[in-house]
């Protein structure tokens, strides 16, 4: 009898375990995530240093990770022989309203650098064709990270005489890779956008 009692007790324990564990159902949705992976809109803002209206060009990926193609909206139309300050505006517009992602890059400035490429000698400063092909080529960076390496959210440009060509801006994510000499092929590409460039 004693054994049977023990067994009943055991069965009872098992059953209780089941009742208490198997029947809890929750209806919770996953919590909202602050999406840091997605950039949908990149705006290049060229502000003339002497004052005047800023020139903007932008690229938009309407659905982020979705299948819709990236759209480059408009060309970069700059005046000849003029100095500009280029500031980058990076947003995630899948959120409503659009979320400015510049902060994300500023917070991780030691892991990021912008690289540029353009038609040879389109600018008098910087001269040449940019630093995507060779990292030591000149670019006028106006900002740097906490290690003193260039960042590129803000850069200076002086156009040459009238010409047409292309202008590429590339953001590299370089965790533990970024140094004074790291280039556009080190780390991973956050974005790489090519615009038509018209200097009139």
């Amino acid at each position: 009898m004693k054994n049977i009692f023990k067994l009943n007790y055991l069965l009872y324990t098992v059953l209780t375990l089941f009742i208490f564990t198997a029947c809890e159902e929750d209806e919770a949705a996953p919590e909202e995530e602050n999406e840091v992976e997605v950039f949908t809109d990149v705006k290049l803002v060229f502000t003339p240093t002497a004052g005047g209206a800023a020139v903007e060009a932008s690229a938009q990926d309407p659905d982020g990770a979705g299948v819709q193609e990236l759209q480059v909206l408009g060309a970069i139309n700059l005046a000849a022989n003029t100095s500009y300050t280029l500031t980058m505006v990076i947003e995630n517009c899948l959120e409503s309203p659009c979320e400015l992602m510049n902060e994300e890059i500023e917070e991780e400035d030691v892991e990021h650098q912008f690289f540029f490429a353009f038609t040879n000698d389109a600018f008098t400063s910087p001269a040449g064709n940019g630093n995507i092909d060779s990292a030591s080529d000149p670019i006028n960076y106006n900002d740097s990270d906490s290690n003193g390496h260039s960042l590129g959210l803000n850069t200076s440009w002086t156009t040459g005489s009238a010409s047409t060509g292309t202008f590429t801006v590339q953001l590299q994510h370089q965790p533990d890779v970024k140094t004074a000499t790291s280039g556009a092929t080190d780390g991973d590409t956050d974005f790489a956008l090519t615009f038509n460039l018209n200097i009139n």
């Binding site: 929750d26 919770a28 995530e33 602050n34 992976e37 990770a65």
Partner: peptide, 20 residues
């Protein structure tokens, strides 16, 4: 019975939803 839950903090859209 299966109960799948996403833990918060991935900073990305869940690849797999929560489900029961």
């Amino acid at each position: 019975n299966q109960d799948n839950d996403n833990n918060p903090g991935t900073s990305t859209t869940p690849y797999i939803p929560n489900y029961n």
